[in-house]
Design a protein around this nucleic acid. Structure first.
Lengths: 238, 238
DNA sequence: CGCTGTCTTGAGGACGGTCAATGTTCGTGG
DNA sequence: CCACGAACATTGACCGTCCTCAAGACAGCG
């Protein structure tokens, strides 16, 4: 089942078995990608979209000196560049963080779905708008929070996303990002990211060791990061 | 013609006359809104979407102390909260900046369009993803640029958007935002915004007086703000 | 004509950046 | 099994950008 994690704990219930079957039929290829590789570059025309079955990917933009700004981090269950379907090309780069397993869906097949399955199309639209909601939260984070709060907020978001697909138990999960990567997501330097991680540890909120994240005090962390998960549109039970 | 500015100079050419007629039929009401009023609050369930015919609106989120972070500024031709259609509610507040004229489109009518006009639906999807592309650029701006560059970038974006709908000639346009508003868009304090505006004037790049913006050196301004309009998906001729 | 919101300017301080050195971990190959 | 190198993490000293606080000027509107 390729799309087992699609919208899992979001609006999964609205995806009928028929919808899912139709979606599975659109997959033209399943591919394994190496870690740390840019898969799609800004402005490349795209004819298929990438659904992430397994692994971590990210989207980023470069400034003039080549410094990166991450604009999204993707986990299993994310339709990573579905927005390339209506847009026609991407305005940013798309890269793997870890080795990944992805399903490729030709846009021609999605055009068919638009006609034959408007209800499914609306759910796919919804999933691209979830990303937009996260973008807005990132804007808020960068515009209004200081470094320690940004980092807290970031980890809260990732934890919530991973929990929705069963990869976090709320206290521990794996995240294959270096401190430099984390800095690129939060708009701070690697050096300062290091200091903030230490402070979070000193405050008893969370710890990080290699790629393992241990949330010691989820409530305190969310409070510090002004994190409210409602923008993730998670199911109530979650 | 309500939707005269919809996707104008974007992919207007792909909107057939039939599509436009069908879209006009969905309008249930045309309303005039006062300036500086929050129209939709975060988490309000929404049953209609707002198309902006005339005026300026913005979307924003508040931090715990009540300080605002703008996440979007909207001009005529923007389908301001179309994302509320697939999402069901908004994760932010929506407010007018000036008195506005808007068209209201019930979501039930949009559901019909999804079925009867998949091609039009895809263009509406596209328009929500334009907003997402702008969100990403805002993330980049806040994460990677310093204050003077953020301000430059912001004005370049607004100018490009207004030019697309015929409200800027490239050298002058009107923008009804106070320096505090501008600060809330760029993640800086009003005081520092004031200093940055002065520096832009001193450098001969642009001037602002009341609500009038005069771009003296568009190329220099774009360079300083690392602005590349490709994310706006404007037609080549524009 | 005075009130209110907006703009302007200055002084001082804090947060986060920069630069640089050192420590740690891990994969690779001898 | 050890030696080496590369990537990543850690720490310190210094500094600049931007924030805070505060006062005053200006403009529009009743």
């Amino acid at each position: 089942m390729v799309f087992a994690d699609l919208l899992r704990n979001r609006r999964r219930d609205r995806l009928t078995a028929d919808d899912l079957d139709a979606l599975e039929m659109t997959v033209s290829d399943i591919r394994s990608l190496p870690a740390r590789r840019t898969m799609i570059a800004r402005n490349d025309p795209v004819r298929m979209s990438t659904y992430l079955i397994e692994g971590f990917m990210c989207r980023y933009m470069d400034d003039r000196q080549g410094a990166r700004q991450l604009v999204a981090v993707h986990v299993a269950g994310d339709f990573v560049d579905l927005h390339g379907f209506p847009l026609g090309h991407l305005d940013h780069d798309l890269a793997t963080l870890t080795p990944c397993k992805v399903a490729l869906v030709p846009h021609s097949a999605l055009d068919n779905l638009m006609v034959t399955r408007p209800h499914l199309a609306k759910l796919l639209w919804f999933s691209t708008l979830l990303d937009a909601a996260m973008h807005r939260e990132w804007i808020f984070r960068l515009g209004r929070l200081d470094a320690i709060a940004r980092v807290s907020h970031f980890f809260c978001e990732i934890e919530a996303k991973l929990r929705a697909v069963g990869q976090s138990d709320g206290a521990h999960f794996q995240l294959p990002m270096t401190q430099a990567d984390l800095g690129e997501a939060c708009g701070i330097t690697p050096v300062h990211m290091n200091r903030m991680l230490r402070e979070l540890k000193d405050r008893g909120l969370m710890e990080i060791s290699r790629n393992h994240i241990y949330i010691k005090d989820p409530i305190g962390l969310a409070q510090l990061g002004e994190f409210d998960p409602s923008y993730l549109f998670l199911d109530a039970r979650n």
